[in-house]
Nucleic acid binder design. Structure first.
Lengths: 225, 225
DNA sequence: ATAATGTCTTAACCTTGCCTTAATAAGTAA
DNA sequence: TTACTTATTAAGGCAAGGTTAAGACATTAT
C-alpha cells in the first residue's frame, strides 16, 4: 500500500520539523510549506490526503488558504485540519465555515497529533456527507447532520439505527452478514444477541418502509433502493 | 500592478506609526489622518482602496466619518474597516448600519491586521466577522467583538459559552461530537468532565432559546437556525 | 489587600429514551 | 412435519444527557 500523503503548512521552522519528524516516523509521506501560497502550489502537485494548516501565518493565513483549497475542484475533498493556538483571539479561530474538518490546538503534543491524524485519515470521508442517491431510492443519508431524508422529509434516527442504515446503504444491493454488521456497527469486541440486529432492522423498516430491507435467510441483510 | 492604497485614521500618533509601518512593509501605499474631517478630505483626493477608521476620535468619530464616506458617490464602494477597543460601549455599534465592512479590534496585532487587510482587499468583501445571518435565525454572532445578537438585542456571553456557540454555529446543521467540541473549545489536552459540556449547552439554551440546540444522543450537538 | 462579582467545573441526582433481551409467533427449507 | 431462522412485541435495564446547586477559581471593584 502506498504511503499516505500529508501536507504540513506552518511558518515556524521548528514546528515544521517537529511535526514532520513525528509523522514521518509513523510512515507518512510528509511535505511542508511555509505559507499559504506555497501550500496551494504544492497541494496541486502532490494531491495530499490530509493538509495540516497553521491558522496564524503571514501573507495568507490558514483560513484563507483553507477556503482556496476548497475552491479547487481537485482538492475540495482533501481533509483539512487547522492548527490553532488556544490563547489566540477567537476572531482568528473563526470556524468550520472555512471548510475545515477538524481543529488541532497548540501546543502540539506529538503523540496526540499522530493519533488524531490517523483518526482523520481512517475516517477518510468527513465531507462525504451524502450517500445513496436520492433520485432512485427516495432515501438520502446525511452523515454530517445525522439526518435521513425520505422523499425529502427529514427524519432523525437513533445512533445505532442510523449507523446500521448507513452501513447497509453504503453498498446498495450487497449482502452484509450478521457478523459483518456486528463488527462494523457494534464493534469487534461487543457481544450482543442475534435478535438485536433483527430489532433494529425492524425499526428501520417501520420508519422507512419494508421494501428497502431484504432478508437473506441464513446470511444477512441488504439494502435496495 | 499598482500599490493598493490604504487610508489610516486614528488620533493616536503611536497607533498611526505602528500600523502604517507594518502596512508599508507589506507594500501598501499608506496615508494617514488624525481625525474624521481630514480623513474625508484625503479620501477624496487619494481614492483609497481601504479605509481603516478608529471609532473613538475627537471632532468626528469613526461611525460618523464612515457614514459620510458612504454618502460620497466616489467613495461609496471603498472598503471600510473600523478599529474598536474590545470593551467599548457597543450600543452605538449595535446598528452596524453605518456601512462598515469589518471590525478589527484593539489591541492591534500587526500580523493579524496585515492578514486581515489582505483578506479584505483580496475578496473585496467583508470577512467572516459576522456569521449566521440575522434574517433566518434571529441570531447574529460577532466573533470579532465577542457579541451575540438575538433579534438585534445585544447580549454578551462568557468566553466558553461564546466559543461553544461560535463553534456550533460556524457550521449550522452539522453535528459536532463531544470530542470535537472538547478539542476545539477546551483544547486537546485539557481534561474536563462530560457534564461540563452539557452545562454550557444548557446556559446557551437558557439565553438563546431551546430550539437552536439539538442533541444527537450518543453523538453530539448541532446548531440549527 | 479585601471584598464582590462572575465564570467554570464538578458532583449528585433526575429524566429520558435507546438498546437489549426474552418470549412468542411466523416463515422457510429439508 | 421438523428443525431452523427470522419477525414481532413488550418490558426492563441502563447509559446518556438534563438539571441544579455549590465550591473553586479568576477577575474586577472597593
Amino acid at each position: 500500500m502506498n504511503k499516505q500523503k500529508i501536507l504540513l503548512v506552518d511558518d515556524e521552522p521548528d514546528i515544521l520539523e517537529l511535526i514532520s519528524f513525528n509523522l514521518e516516523k509513523e510512515g507518512f509521506d510528509v511535505q511542508t510549506a511555509s505559507n499559504g501560497r506555497i501550500a496551494l502550489q504544492k497541494a496541486r502537485l502532490q494531491k495530499p490526503d490530509l493538509v495540516l494548516l497553521d491558522v496564524m501565518m503571514p501573507e495568507m493565513d490558514g483560513m484563507e488558504t483553507c477556503r482556496e483549497l476548497r475552491e479547487d475542484p481537485l482538492l475540495k475533498d482533501v481533509i483539512i485540519a487547522l492548527l490553532t493556538a488556544r490563547n489566540e483571539d477567537y476572531s482568528q479561530i473563526a470556524g468550520f465555515e472555512a471548510g475545515a474538518d477538524d481543529y488541532i490546538s497548540k501546543p502540539i503534543k506529538p503523540r496526540v497529533l499522530v493519533s488524531r491524524v490517523k483518526a482523520l485519515l481512517r475516517r477518510q470521508q468527513p465531507t462525504a456527507a451524502v450517500t445513496a442517491p436520492t433520485s432512485s431510492s427516495g432515501i438520502t443519508i446525511d452523515k454530517e447532520r445525522y439526518l435521513v431524508f425520505k422523499n425529502n422529509e427529514p427524519l432523525t434516527l437513533p445512533k445505532k439505527e442510523f449507523e446500521l442504515l448507513a452501513l447497509l446503504s453504503s453498498a446498495p444491493g450487497r449482502v452484509f452478514t450478521r457478523e459483518n454488521i456486528l463488527n462494523t456497527v457494534w464493534g469487534n469486541d461487543v457481544v450482543v444477541g442475534d435478535r438485536t440486529i433483527d430489532v433494529h432492522i425492524r425499526k428501520l423498516r417501520e420508519k422507512l418502509g419494508d421494501d428497502y430491507f431484504k432478508t437473506i435467510k441464513g446470511v444477512g441483510y441488504k439494502f435496495e433502493p
